[in-house]
Structures are given as C-alpha cells and as structure tokens.
Amino acid sequence: MAIKQRKLELGVLVASLALVTSCKREDRPFQTSAPSAEAIQFTRMTDFRAGGPSISGNQPSPAMSADETPEEKEFEENAYMVGEGKRLFSAFNCVGCHAHGGGGMGPALIDDQWIYGHEPAQIFCTIIEGRPNGMPSFGGKIPSFQVWQLASYVRSLGGLVPGDAAPGRDDDMHGGPPENSAPNQKPNDSSLPKSAEMPK
C-alpha cells in the first residue's frame, strides 16, 4: 500500500514538473535582453555595408560559426517570441516581398534554400545589413531583440524551430500548413537555385 502511494506521489511529482517546464514556453519578459547585437561584427560576409561605414568604425571581421551566440535559443524555444516575430513580419512589411513565406519579389522562406545562411545570426545579419537585389538594410531601424524575434519566426517558416514554439494559427490567408507543422527540411545554405545544381 505504502509503495503504491509512493509511486502515485512520484507520478504526480513528475507530471507537475513537466507542467512547470512547459510554462517557460510562453515566458513574456517586459524588458527583453537580446543576444548581443555585436554578433553582426562576426558573421559579416564582406566589409561593405549599406549606408556607408558604421560610426564605430568598419572593422574587418572573420566569419564565425553562429553557435557562439547561444542565447538565441531562448528566442526560438519561446512561443511568445516567435509569435511576436510573426506579428512584426507583417507590421514591418516583410510580407510585401516575401508574402507569408511563399515569396514573390523576394525569395520564398518556406523552402530549404537559405541563400545567406539559415543560422539565426546569419538571418539577423541579413535583416540588419540588407542583401543585394532588393533586400533593404534595417540596421538602426529595428531594436535588436525584435530582429532576433523576426529571425526566429523566419526560421519557423522553414521548419527549423521546435514545433511547440512555432505559431499554430494565422489571421491572414495562408496557403501552406501552419508554422508548427512545417516540414522539417535539411537547410541548404546555397545561393544556387535547385535547377542549377549538379544532378546527383
């Protein structure tokens, strides 16, 4: 009897622990601390930047593997952050060129092609610096925590964000499945379109 009860207690404890951990999924900090905006100094592809050299000096920078900014995971595993990214994606008119992920004037974001890299820090830089052929630079226009939110949402479009944190519904017309059911695709960091690749 006593053992049975202890087993029950243990079960309840484990279940409540599981509940406690899932609470963090929707953590909403009022004062958002972002992963360092300095990440941009390390993941830049060239020394050129939109709008001329930065005020703090245009430092040449080696390429960096993006996992040197581990805090960005906090954005990807938090449903609120990804959801905010989704809100800003429309608010800042990303949809104007990328549509709701399907692409238009700009490239599609729901496929596995990541022309300028699929890591959060690489997407961060793409938003901040702008890219050739039309992607404007948003450096100085969007606070860095919002850029991280946008980056996590852009990754969720390609199925790179945990399904329990990605948004599950949409207020707009949306062709594909919701972000939390996006197929988990192996990201392909290449600027080559599929049709130009060497046949295997």
Partner: peptide, 8 residues
Amino acid sequence: LHTTCVMC
C-alpha cells in the same frame, strides 16, 4: 526618420 520611430 532614421531610427526605430519611423517603423511604426
């Protein structure tokens, strides 16, 4: 016109 204000 050149910082965050203009976005919203």
